Amino acid sequence: MNNTWVLVANASEARLFNLIKSDLERVKSFSHDESRMKGEDLASDRPGAYQSDVNREGHGSYAEPTNPKEHEKDRFARELADILNKARSENQFNELVIVASPHFHGLINQHLDDESSKKVSHHIEKDYTQVEDGDMLEILLPYLRPYLKE
């Protein structure tokens, strides 16, 4: 099978397309609502507090090790990368084009395995998640032209 998949994503939603001849066919859509939530809604409560020995003055609070919102973005990136890694191992695509906002693009790249990373033929650091499916090919045409089959 000789085909190209195109992942269009940001931290809260993603669409996976298969480039067939000169058309993009949606394979699947993904949503991660937690990435849209406010940080304080994601954390269980305020940071824990501590007090030093009774005879000594001192107290403070523990800082959160990671921002809850950033953690959710990373979780979604890992989920998408796991799907791509599995699909690559099942030979569902030969080439992969990743279209994502710069920061989220980096998160996805961190979670792709080595073999899947080798399949990425083009990186587009833009957020095109608001583009309608029917308009996606036209928007991405300058990047996808080498992969189009007549």
Rank of each mutant, 00 (worst) to 15 (best):
F93K: 06
E70P: 01
D114C: 00
S22T: 12
A81Y: 09
E132I: 09
G58R: 07
N94P: 00
S29F: 05
A81H: 10
I98S: 03
H122L: 12
D114P: 00
P68K: 10
K118H: 10
S12Q: 09
E57H: 13
E90M: 07
N18Q: 09
Q130I: 05
S35R: 03
H32S: 05
H71D: 13
F76Y: 08
Y50L: 12
G106Y: 04
E90V: 02
T66L: 11
I98L: 08
D53F: 12
L107V: 07
F30M: 05
Q110C: 08
H71F: 14
Q130L: 11
I98V: 06
S121I: 03
R46M: 14
W5H: 05
Q110L: 13
N18P: 00
E90R: 12
E138I: 09
D133I: 03
Y143R: 04
F17L: 00
S29L: 06
S61E: 14
R75C: 11
S121E: 05
D114F: 08
D133K: 07
Y50G: 10
E95M: 09
S29T: 10
E72P: 01
K119C: 13
N3I: 04
S116P: 02
R46D: 15
Q92R: 15
I98P: 04
T4R: 03
L19Q: 07
G106R: 04
G39Q: 10
L16G: 01
L96I: 01
L42G: 12
R145M: 06
E72L: 05
G58T: 09
Q92N: 13
S31W: 00
P102D: 09
H105Y: 10
K86I: 04
T129C: 03
P102S: 11
Y128V: 02
A11C: 10
L137Q: 07
D23R: 13
Y128Q: 07
I108C: 04
S29W: 01
D74P: 03
K119Q: 10
S52N: 14
D135I: 01
G39Y: 10
A81L: 07
R88T: 06
L107T: 10
L112C: 07
K73Q: 15
N91Q: 14
L140M: 03
D133P: 02
H105M: 05
V54S: 14
Q130K: 14
Y50R: 15
D113H: 09
T4Y: 04
S35T: 06
E150V: 08
D127N: 12
H59N: 14
N55F: 12
H103Y: 07
D127H: 02
E34C: 05
K21Y: 05
A100D: 02
I139R: 12
G48C: 04
N18Y: 01
N91H: 14
A11Y: 05
L140A: 03
S35I: 04
G48V: 11
S116L: 01
